[in-house]
Design a protein around this nucleic acid. Structure first.
Lengths: 358, 358
DNA sequence: ATGAAAGCGCTAACAT
DNA sequence: ATGTTAGCGCTTTCAT
């Protein structure tokens, strides 16, 4: 229930700018309304809501109770004009088509809300780059920018940090710059995939890569190849893909087929699902009997019985928590703000060992 | 590239509040910076950016060019304090787990950006209701609230409208109140489903309903039953479901099985996919040979070959466009702001006619 | 058409 | 601990 009562301006209140006056008697309360009611100054109202401020507990209690009763809450917009902190975090992301990103956004915005922030969404149209959104962000006094699964140029990263705003990369790193970032251990995930393939009797391992220009994909590829070398196995085949989409995965499987792999590691789950589709429907082969498949992300659908996809599980909740925690790291801090979370292998049917199924 | 140069305050500028002074020489430009540079007043800068304002074309051109060159853009936050219009729209939604909602959010935020708005996300935790978010919204001076696939009490709707803010329901209606809303024609969709089942030789039609308390589901059910009656067919069975999830669909199919339906209409695609899963994996029946299936929403996965789900397609782009258009309907307008978009049937393999497959 | 000045609601330095 | 006051950056009368 909103309480928004009409209050006549007290005598000592300056004549309001009529153009700005609400056209309606029903108004949202201001600090002045509460202050007048209690016979205190507006500063006290402000202090009551600011944990650091020096104010007697009794007064704070009195104010908070009155505020609660009237339904008063400080106007974040006005407050942000003086403090330059808006309690708004810009979240930049591309498409939500990949359920993984949808999950990220959902949990991120929820966690941010828990920490007292709201998320202002900046959706990149296909082909649009993050840098282009910057001028718009600046207009909104956002406290920080969280960039999900997209990259920025280091020049921009610099400009941003200089402008006093925090930039956090989620699921990406900027290799040569100390830009705060939260990732899962992509290399480790790829290594787990190799080891699991080998342990379950696979010999001809292929890799369906994602977008070449993303750090995520580069790391997954690096880990996969490195581990292959360590265990003394050769890469059977590899294909690149422009979009990391279901269709890309589908096509990737078809392109890998001539190399006759008995196991394919896809750079993400959505591609893996497309790959399974192609393997079963178009190549007329069986998963896992003929080709074992591992994905990456552990999206909800990977667990659906139809797919039962073995995949690499990034600890999303912890990653999101890290990202939010990074928001409150003080500016000059020397601690490393490039956080990497370990991943785990989730074994499902798409990698049933040879011995059992064959 | 951000241009944020250090500008020394001109002599006539009052001593700034030191607490608010940037701790860095590199600053974001204010209207004053541009004004001083051009030797005009800040009012003129403001007017240059306001299409309605009276300003000579020459002056506007001069200012806009300078602004462009310097990278100045008006601060939305400061501006919203005077105008009470923030160019921010609150988007309230529950979980993004259902890909349909992810699609809605993506297109909605994109369309809003196109219209000069940004979306401030309010994510409802499970069990949390929209009304509870209101006090938070008020803090942000949002211009409007778009509520996606969730409902509000009519009391709150009233309070909101009275507070001078626009409320728009997306994919829901409030039956007894003229709250602006954008929906697809749920009844028509359900009718199309019945007709298609009948036309393809099905006789025992069942319905897997969604959440009882949503207008969307109520309308789909109403349409389904009404059309069944019109064509003289009886409902074979019906089950309710609490969450509209994949698992709900799975369970629904199992519960409907004893009634031996040869066709099931699911209240949405995600449930339908779960249903297909249960039918094939657990009941060991075939889709569409034994049971035909129709969903609702036309999520991307419905088109994947594994499922190839016949479904009802809501014209999402047009719905989103309608929602954004509603933002600019003037307050006192008498035009009906409850918009309903027609849907279409997308025929895929899950409803292959009996004659062909049987 | 333009400038001066007041004010949006809140915060913080300063004074008591 | 509390009140007073001067801003935050922009918009909008009001006067010219």
């Amino acid at each position: 229930m909103v309480i928004a009562i009409g209050i006549t301006h007290s005598a000592n209140h300056r004549k309001p700018n009529m153009a700005n006056a609400p056209r309606d008697a029903t108004r949202i309360l201001r600090a002045r309304d509460v202050a007048d009611l209690l016979g205190v100054s507006t500063s006290m109202i402000s202090r009551a809501f600011n944990p650091q401020a020096s104010i007697s507990p009794a007064m704070r209690k009195r104010i908070m109770e009155a505020a609660e009763a009237l339904g008063y809450r400080p106007n974040v917009i006005a407050s942000s004009l003086s403090t330059r902190r808006s309690k708004i975090v810009a979240v930049i992301l591309g498409t939500l088509e990949n359920p993984f990103y949808a999950q990220v956004l959902e949990r991120l915005s929820r966690e941010l809300q828990g920490a007292g922030y709201q998320s202002l969404l900046f959706n990149l149209a296909p082909g649009q780059d993050v840098d282009s959104q910057l001028p718009y962000l600046l207009q909104y006094n956002v406290d920080a920018v969280i960039i999900v699964s997209a990259s920025i140029s280091s020049g921009i990263a610099n400009d941003w940090t200089n402008s006093g705003r925090k930039v956090i990369l989620f699921n990406r790193t900027l290799p040569n710059m100390p830009v705060p970032s939260v990732c899962c251990d992509n290399q480790q995930g790829a290594r787990l995939a190799v080891d699991h393939f080998v342990a379950t009797g696979r010999e001809r391992l292929a890799f369906a890569a994602g977008r070449r220009d993303t750090s995520t994909n580069a790391e997954r590829e690096l880990g996969f190849l490195a581990r292959l070398a360590e265990v003394g196995t050769k890469l059977a085949a590899k294909v690149d893909n422009p979009h990391c989409s279901f269709r890309d995965g589908y096509n990737a499987a078809l392109k890998l087929a001539p190399a006759q792999p008995d196991a394919i590691f896809f750079a993400n789950d959505v591609m893996a699902l497309g790959g399974v589709e192609a393997i079963e429907k178009e190549l007329k082969l069986r998963v896992p009997e003929d080709i074992a498949v591992i994905g990456f992300d552990d999206i909800p659908m990977a667990a659906w019985p139809t797919y039962s996809l073995t995949t690499i599980h990034p600890p999303l909740d912890e990653m999101v928590a890290s990202a939010v925690k990074l928001l409150s790291v003080p500016e000059g801090s020397t601690e490393d703000t490039r956080i990497i979370h370990p991943v785990t292998l989730v074994v499902r049917d798409s990698t049933q060992p040879r011995e059992i199924t064959g």
